[in-house]
């Protein structure tokens, strides 16, 4: 017994292991694990056939499609714009750079509901931006374009903040060497810089995509929420809850949770591969 205790003590030189682990585990269980398990427990009350029939209803499938397609387009746009912004912020000194750099995080700090309302008012056909587009017959607010706009707003910091630190640490000697050997800037970018940024950019893309799938506050105001057209998956859960239909809400939530876990897995995978590459 005493030798066992001795062994354990030698494993952890620092005191307080039991206390810290105990507090961490119990708080994690109370706040996250037990409530999440209640989702699965609620799910077992549904039969498999019920579950399938709920999530294969046309309206539910349409909501999933809208969520996935809009998040994907927004994340793709953010991948491009995030790379441009990170590049400009790291490589080009210009007046007001600090200001722009600080502003990038605004979507993290601004309450999502306020972002949604503001974007909806701006892009409605009477709004400042919407009226310009309305002249050409383009509607933004209350269409899928509006959803994409809201998701671009919400997702942009993820890509910029993933890429920026990697770009800052990138040693310019390789680019200089490539330039010396006659490579054009274009070739240098695509052959030297982009491969270095790829893991970070992909992580940012995946994070922005995952956030877009679950986003609710900023989207509901701008989406218009037409069934089959501009209804997103989180709103479907909300609608079922308002009718106190917990079974349906649970079924949709389980599917969304599944997608979220796959995304978490993908992000971890990308980071693991990147770490292995740099260590090798």
């Amino acid at each position: 017994m005493s030798s066992k205790r001795e062994k354990r003590r030698s494993k952890h030189i620092l005191p307080g292991f039991g206390l810290s682990l105990g507090i961490t585990m119990s708080m994690l269980s109370i706040i996250v694990i037990i409530p999440l398990l209640s989702l699965f427990w609620g799910g077992t009350e549904l039969s498999w056939a019920d579950f399938i029939s709920i999530i294969s209803r046309g309206r539910v499938l349409a909501a999933f499609r809208v969520s996935i397609v809009c998040s994907f387009i927004a994340a793709l746009f953010n991948l491009f714009m995030g790379l441009v912004l990170a590049w400009v912020l790291v490589r080009y000194p210009f007046p007001g750079r600090k200001f722009v750099d600080g502003l990038i995080e605004l979507p993290f700090a601004l309450p999502t509901a306020i972002a949604g309302m503001t974007l909806a008012s701006l892009t409605a056909d009477t709004g400042w931006v919407g009226s310009l587009f309305a002249r050409f017959g383009i509607e933004i607010a209350y269409t899928r374009t509006g959803i994409v706009i809201a998701l671009i707003f919400v997702g942009i910091p993820f890509v910029v903040r993933s890429v920026q630190p990697v770009l800052e640490q990138l040693d310019p000697v390789y680019e200089e060497a490539a330039g010396m050997m006659g490579a054009s800037r274009c070739t240098t970018f695509f052959r030297i810089i982009l491969p270095e940024l790829r893991p970070a950019a992909l992580t940012g893309f995946a994070l922005a995509f995952a956030r877009g799938l679950g986003e609710y506050g900023s989207v509901v105001f701008i989406a218009g929420n037409q069934p089959y057209e501009t209804e997103i998956a989180p709103l479907m859960i909300m609608a079922q809850l308002e009718e106190y239909d917990y079974g349906e809400a649970t079924a949709i939530a389980l599917v969304m949770l599944g997608i979220a876990f796959v995304m978490l897995f993908v992000v971890n995978g990308i980071q693991l591969r990147a770490r292995r590459r740099t260590n090798a």
Binding site: S38, L39, G214, E215, Y216, L241, A253, M256, A260
Partner: peptide, 8 residues
Amino acid sequence: SPVIAGLI
């Protein structure tokens, strides 16, 4: 998703 957080 925050909506799922409320639901659980």
